[in-house]
Amino acid sequence: MKFGVIRFPGSCDEVDAQLACQRVGEAEILWHADRDLRGVDAVVVPGGFSYGDYLRAGAIARFAPVMVEVAEFARAGGLVLGICNGFQVLCEAGLLPGALLDNANLRFVFRQVSLVVVSSDSPFTRACEPDRPLSIPVKHMTGCYYAPPELLRGLQERDQVLLRYAPGHNPNGSLRDIAGVCNAARNVFGLMPHPEHAVDPLTGSIDGLAIFQSIRAAVADRLAV
């Protein structure tokens, strides 16, 4: 299978995401100005500071030409993973519910955190072992997940919260410790932690690999159908 990783001006973690994807499949970089996904099987919207986070994190990137194709791809059921800035972009684009606000302490935070896999019933978490927390780093300025109460209830009822920060590990004030949510159709997923920075024992943990392995397995199932 082939992943496509989008590069906006100001993306920082796109090569890291590409390297992580390449541990489970092929991966190429997609240019923000091209309305072309080059036939990839899954799209990753990576971390960084697209357009300098000017105006609001993700607010400008959602208007990039490539995002028209990403929205179309998602509507057709394609798998889209948004990491950190990518999560912000997908929320701004209306492909994911809720919004990300500045961290509660108004500072950038880097930290290795522990995540609870709330649901492994998704193409993004199916390879995660139940009851085994994931150790994955966060690094962001705008990662405090917010949704109005009725939406929060709905997310919970529809099992759309896939990852939560473990008790005591919420680094940013996110409501209900939410670290990652998917859309109602469960084919678009955004998370603030960086699974692409947890794939190599040399540089940290390898718990992020499960996310990429999940996507690979889900795509393989679909291709087999």
Binding site: D16, F108, V109, F110, R111, H197, D200, T203, G204
Partner: peptide
């Protein structure tokens, strides 16, 4: 202080702050 900095982007960082006396980059 160092929690306000990203020490891992570019996927080279083998020893992060407080893990060793020097930073190590693969």
């Amino acid at each position: 202080v160092y929690e306000q900095y990203d020490p891992i982007v570019q996927s080279r960082t083998v020893r992060r702050p407080d893990e060793a006396d020097a930073a190590v980059l693969a």
